[in-house]
Structures are given as structure tokens and as C-alpha cells.
Amino acid sequence: MKVTFACALLLMCGCVWAQEEFGPKGPVVKIIGAPVVTVVQGKPATVPLSFAVSSGFHINSNHPKSEFLIPTVLKVEATTDIIIGKTTYPEGQDMSFAFAPDEKLNVYTGDFEIDVLVRPLHSVQPGKYVIRGTLRYQACDNTACYPPKNLPVSFDVKIQKARSAPAANPAQSPHAHN
């Protein structure tokens, strides 16, 4: 027991040391929610992806108010069996910062959600599929900015078989009365 504890302590020391070596030097955007969405063959569904921007930082929204600002963009890799539809971004917040008090920037802070529309083809085999993408963002705080980063994103889509329509019974005639 004591030895296990000592091993865990050693590993924790390693992790702390790693943190000291590399940062925390900059902002972190994390994916905090990507629920498995169940979709019926041939039908569209929305996948809500939740992200969190670390406290004290902001990232540009999808529609920043200057041509020089880098928008937040989610790029989803195309798949052969699932059509990736529209990506819906939230409205950003208009905020002023100490470095430009007279200017309003449109940004995301805290948690925000991006919705991705998916539609599996009718021919897709039922089952779980992994869809991958990248969130590109560029963050700043009150006194500095950080180079653009790419956050790998992945989410699962569970595809169910479409119910077949009830077939008409040609053998039975509604007028067959004796």
C-alpha cells in the first residue's frame, strides 16, 4: 500500500514538473461536451459540441469585427457515409478590453457551443461512427495575444436503421366479401 502510494507520488511529481516546464503559459480551449447523437439512416441530426475558454482569456468569435482578426472556425473532416451539413456558431459577446477601450471586439469567453448538422446516407450501415475535426482559434487576454491554435475535435454518431414503411398486402382485397 505504502509502495503504491510512493509510486503515485512519484508520478504526480513528474506531472507537476512537466507543468512547471511548459506552462501554463497560454490560454486553453477545451472540448467539454460531445454527446453521442443517435441518428436514423437518411435523417439529419444536430450534434452540439461544447467548448470552454480558460478564465481570463477570450477568443475571437466566428465573426470578429476586424479583417485582421482570426475567426474561430470548426472544420469537420468529410466522411464517405455521413454528410456534414451546416456548422452553427453562437453569437459572440461585444466586449472592450484594456488595450483598446474604444473598440468593441466580438468574442467568446467561458463556455460556448457549436452545432454541427450531420445526415447519414440511407445506405450507411448502422453502428457507431467517429467524426473528426479541428477547432482553429486565436486567443488573447488583457495584455497579450497568443498564436492561432488548432484543437483536435472528435465526436461519435450512432446510426440506427430506418424503420421500413409497412408494406401493403396485395393478397387481401377490401372488397372481397362473400
Binding site: 509502495v3 503504491t4 509510486c7 512519484l10 508520478l11 511529481c13 513528474g14 514538473w17 512537466a18 516546464e21
Partner: peptide, 19 residues
């Protein structure tokens, strides 16, 4: 317990060296 300790120490050293 001795093997466990050495495995733990080895993993920690590898973590240091890798980083």
C-alpha cells in the same frame, strides 16, 4: 512491493526524460 516501486520510479524517470 519492491518491483512495484521500481516500475513506478522507472515510469517517472521516463516521463522526465521524454519531456
Amino acid at each position: 512491493p519492491i518491483i512495484l516501486f521500481f516500475v513506478g520510479a522507472l515510469v517517472a524517470v521516463m516521463l522526465f526524460a521524454g519531456i
